[in-house]
């Protein structure tokens, strides 16, 4: 049997590249003026243009949480965010959490509770946990489980992650 299938090419859209646009972003405390194409996601900007590879790409579709960063203190998926849209915002990535050699309490807790194995989802988990603490809605262990469910850990380190977040919640004040 035989039939024809034609993949759908992009028809009526003009072939060409988008112009670069100027944005100002404060990334981990440092203000940066950048020229970015509109189609560049915040995630790709960090990883491919600024060499901030701590933020991970695990699916590129908002389905895993590996790309979680904090924008103005709130956790978001950087893969579903265009960099140009965050003009003027403050971005915190995993690289910006520690103060010099002093790790953030969430980072400390992750090491202590072995809250990771391969480490690939870890920066996203940690940023997400910091966001969770800032939000202040997690009161119980089950709350933590639910509110950390936007970060998939394929190694299955969830018990350690929950223990680490519980510990960090005790020592952190919101917005620390």
């Amino acid at each position: 049997m035989s039939s024809k299938v034609l993949t759908e090419p992009i028809g009526d859209v003009a072939v060409g590249l988008p112009p670069l646009q100027r944005v100002t972003l404060t990334i981990n405390g440092a203000e940066k003026q950048l020229e970015v194409a509109p189609w560049t996601s915040l995630l790709d900007l960090l990883r491919e243009y600024l060499d901030l590879t701590g933020t991970k790409k695990g699916c590129d579709h908002g389905q895993c949480g590996a790309c979680t960063v904090l924008v103005d203190g709130k956790r978001i998926n950087s893969c579903l965010t265009l960099a140009v849209m965050k003009d003027g915002c403050e971005i915190t990535t995993v690289e910006g959490l520690s103060k010099g050699d002093q790790l953030h309490p969430v980072q400390e807790a992750f090491i202590e509770h072995d809250a990771f194995q391969c480490g690939y989802c870890t920066p996203g988990q940690i940023c997400s946990a910091v966001g969770l603490i800032n939000e202040g809605h997690a009161k119980t262990t089950d709350d933590i489980r639910e509110l950390m469910s936007g970060n998939i850990c394929r190694c299955g380190a969830y018990p350690g992650i929950v223990a680490a977040v519980e510990q960090a919640l005790k020592v952190c004040q919101p917005n620390q």
Binding site: G62, G65, T68, K74, R75, I76, N77, L80, T81, S128, G131, L132, E135, L147, S149, G150, N151
Partner: peptide, 9 residues
Amino acid sequence: GASAQLRNM
């Protein structure tokens, strides 16, 4: 629905 991150966005 979704996740905390997505609900923030």
